[in-house]
């Protein structure tokens, strides 16, 4: 396993937010965490990237115990997060933002990485001198993902990449996620758009109130009655008409 959380507990003050979460991600996989608001999905990502301290339990990465390691070290080691809400540097240009992504790398030859990011997101190339704060929501999301890629991560943590995006962009972002994965980056994905996430992922975990209540290959969760009712919007509507556009790339 590339990344493995073993019985991880996390507290906010007195409140236990993760009550012993065990999640593993194998090299080359897309794994997704789904669940309601407040189930602990974002907390799990923040814990992996070292922003939330662990109360107990262990996080292994590439055979090394990384519990309690500082976030910037984890980036050096190959764990990089594109945070929810994007967190781009608004006063810096697109290029400067991308350069910041490579900040932790020893090898500063970033030309080929820039090329790769611009290939994935041609829009960013058009806007490379524009300051991050003036980008549209979709462009900011692209920039956040692109910036994370500049660190050449082994594992890319994505927190709600489709939030606030137009339907067409949602489809586009998800196909790019697949593309990044095919190019060799392991991905741990948190999404409210569970249908799309499950269609893209290899495996999935369902979180409820700080616990993993279900884990399985993604495809079978798509047909799981409980999951359908709770997270896929199924069972509530007679026509079952889903607004999520089907994937244009197949």
């Amino acid at each position: 396993m590339l990344l493995e959380l073993d019985d991880v507990r996390v507290h906010y003050g007195q409140v236990e937010a993760l009550k012993g979460v065990s999640v593993s991600v194998d090299e080359g996989e897309i794994v997704t965490l789904i669940g309601a608001n407040g189930a602990g999905k974002t907390t799990t990502l923040k814990t992996i990237s070292g922003i939330r301290p662990v109360t107990s339990g262990r996080i292994m990465f590439d055979g090394i115990d990384i519990t309690g390691t500082a976030p910037h070290r984890l980036v050096e080691m190959g764990i990089c997060q594109a945070p929810e809400g994007r967190g781009i540097f608004p006063g810096m240009s697109v290029l400067e933002n991308l350069d910041m992504g490579a900040y932790a790398r020893r090898n500063k030859d970033t030309a080929s990485d820039l090329e790769r990011v611009f290939e994935l997101f041609p829009r960013l190339q058009e806007r490379r001198t524009q300051s991050g704060g003036t980008l549209s929501g979709g462009e900011q999301q692209m920039l956040a993902i692109g910036r994370a890629l500049m660190a050449r991560p082994k594992v890319l943590l994505l927190d709600e990449p489709s939030m606030g995006l137009a339907p067409m962009l949602v489809a586009q972002i998800f196909s790019i996620i697949t593309e990044i994965n095919v190019q060799g980056t392991t991905i741990l994905l948190v999404e409210q758009n569970a249908t799309q996430a499950l269609q893209r992922a290899h495996r999935a975990y369902v979180l409820e109130v700080g616990r993993v209540v279900k884990s399985s290959d993604a495809e079978s969760l798509l047909d799981d009655e409980d999951v359908k009712a709770a997270y896929l919007g199924g069972g509530r509507r007679s026509s079952g008409g889903s607004a999520a556009p089907s994937d244009p790339t197949g």
Binding site: G13, A36, N37, A39, T42, K46, I51, P83, G210
Partner: peptide, 24 residues
């Protein structure tokens, strides 16, 4: 705030859920 996350939203959720209230 270090990563510019939406201020405390997730945290608020977690705290609210664990103090006895189910989600929103």
């Amino acid at each position: 705030q270090a990563m510019g996350a939406v201020a405390g939203v997730d945290e608020a959720d977690v705290v609210a859920q664990h103090t006895g209230d189910r989600a929103a």
